[in-house]
Design a protein around this nucleic acid. Structure first.
Lengths: 221, 221
DNA sequence: TTCAGATAAATTGCATGCATAAATAAGCGG
DNA sequence: CCGCTTATTTATGCATGCAATTTATCTGAA
């Protein structure tokens, strides 16, 4: 048998349900039946309810009193706001990176970015998976490089919340190379400590992502 | 009898407990005994637990598995990070205000700010209460003026989370006039649409607040 | 057919009970 | 007197049960 029971059922559930949403198994609008989830994960309704309430405050799901919870459905306007917010947060993190990343962190970021060149240029139609993974790592490095756990948490929380809407984004033609080129500007600015450019180029990068998503995501009015 | 039972016990509890923390009735480190809270508010442990879990995800309280919940205690370093994060968020909101506030919103902000001049100059030792209230309204206007509900929520959530540590801040000598003068720069920049200055001056304003708080808040290492 | 109202089924909100891990107190050897 | 082990107590985590509300189903009339 494994080891750590240090985690409570509720916490584990919150993670599992969140993952299911992020991975798309539970698309926006899905009803989150308490008993159903309890059966599905082999627990009672109590920890399910606590997990749902936790996810509710993150915005991932929407709890409607006496009417059950659903995976958050988002209007077009709200989706835009989410992207703007994430863009501003990531841009802020990037600016802080330019100011306060350690030399080691700068080297690490640069190295990761360079390793992504191959992933971006290899046959993208076949498998953007590895680039997507590296991309998450890239943005995580930006978050942690800000040296501010609060901003980092907010940014990754937003990223999670948006993930149901970005799934297919990297499948569009040339998006990988575009993304890589945008990263290039951000990284260069951070490396040379140019806070303003780091900020503005990251803002632009995220807004490009937004454009790419908008072209393909049908969201109800 | 009143009317709306549209709100669930859990939600009401979450609000009441949060208020108690914000108002200082439950200082950082306080133990949040489930049964005690249940008795105190005349409910069972179940809604208390759900409310606590909700507050846990906002960061207001700290839930330690199997060891109960306490009002979040914060190290000096974390307090600094919180202030930096809030500063960056408010600065971002201020920048967005400069870009996208409507003429009516600009007028409203200016009017509120002007009304605060009297509150700042009147005998401050006696009663900073009214200025504190107006100050909350001022920053709320900045949040809503960003026209981004996500950023606004994050900023006000952070403000709530910091409120236990800012209570006595405005009692220090001359802090009111200082605050008013700092606001002046921010408002002027927003009114004339100077995004960069709005951002940098708000950042400076919040960091002054941080300084004022640090001088008086004893936080354990 | 479609829609209104009534009835039945399903689901949420909350209280309660119990097992188990922590915290606390008691006992014991040093 | 003090530290460490062991019992006792307390509190948390979770399951279960019930009342109330929502949602689905059924009936009948326009």
């Amino acid at each position: 048998m494994a080891e750590i029971d240090t985690q409570t059922r509720t916490e584990r559930l919150a993670g599992q349900i969140a993952d299911a949403i992020i991975e798309g198994a539970l698309p926006p609008g899905s009803r989150l039946d308490e008993q159903g989830l309890a059966d599905r994960y082999g627990v009672s309704r109590t920890p399910v309810r606590e997990a749902l309430r936790q996810l509710g405050t993150t915005g991932l799901i929407d709890i409607r009193p006496r009417r059950g919870a659903i995976v958050s459905e988002i209007t077009h306007a709200q989706l835009q706001e989410l992207f703007v917010a994430m863009g501003e947060l990531e841009a802020t993190c990037a600016r802080l990176c330019a100011i306060s990343m350690t030399p080691i962190e700068r080297r690490g970021l640069e190295a990761l970015h360079e390793s992504m060149q191959q992933l971006a240029t290899q046959d993208q139609a076949r498998d953007p998976e590895s680039y997507v993974l590296a991309n998450v790592a890239f943005h995580s490095k930006i978050y942690s490089g800000s040296h501010n756990a609060i901003l980092a948490d907010m940014a990754s929380s937003l990223r999670r919340r948006l993930s149901p809407y970005r799934r297919a984004q990297f499948r569009s033609a040339g998006r990988l190379q575009m993304s890589y080129a945008e990263h290039q500007v951000v990284v260069a600015a951070i490396i040379r400590g140019d806070a303003e450019t780091a900020h503005s180029s990251m803002l632009r990068h995220v807004s490009f992502v937004e454009d790419a998503v908008e072209k393909m995501t049908p969201v109800k009015p």
